[in-house]
Amino acid sequence: MTQTITASPSTQAPPGLTFDAVAMRFPDGTQAVEEASFSVAPGEFVSIVGPSGCGKSTLLKITAGLIDATGGHVGIGPGNLGYVFQDATLLPWRTVRGNVELLGELEGMPKAQRRKAAQEAIDLVGLGGFESKYPKSLSGGMKMRASLARALTLQPSTFLFDEPFGALDEITRERLNDELLALFEREGFAGLFITHSIAEAVFLSTRVLVMSARPGRIVGDFEVPFAYPRKPELRFEPAFAELSGRVSECLRGAFA
């Protein structure tokens, strides 16, 4: 596997993600992120919930190097970075297989190897049999699976998710949550997950961060004590409801 996106050329960064007083002020004066400091270790799955427009996507874009922060520093450990966008961002002129092979193609992976990686990823997300379908004939959930498979082909050691299931219906979303959890347990990457669903955040994560309204700051930090593997029934346990309630209360404060 080629090493693709490495953070600082120093390569001294510890594994996972380290945010150190990251701040972002856009040229038009919008202070999107005021101060964010936290870290995500391998095997950790951290979710961020926060009001719309508080700078969550901005934080991920900074992490991925798509935009440059105006303050602070993001350290990214060795290994590939996976990024799942809010939209599936599949290329409509490519089949599922063509889309899943794209990253390998861009990163110069040999053809045989990327074909194999793509097939494994497709099978892993349960899209076997749909390899030669075009995106226009896929449901929203299947598009998201294809998008996930595409990111998986590079076997990322750090995974960013920007509200990937936000546009899906409840049933599909819970199903994909279960599957994402299974993937996480299997691959053990460092996960940073943005969502506006508290239940989703608590169900998936080892830790939930609450971000305040713009300018964004981390105003809440909740350890999620439930052991993996987590069963779907966890969502209906009192402890789950109690923790969700506390996150929700903090989030309401964040709007103020």
């Binding site: 892993l124 349960g126 899209l127 449901s139 959930g141 299947m142």
Partner: peptide, 14 residues
């Protein structure tokens, strides 16, 4: 990457 599906293929959105 393990080749066994994390999810049975039948598990595609209902």
């Amino acid at each position: 990457m393990p080749s066994t599906p994390a999810v049975p293929a039948s598990d595609v959105d209902v």
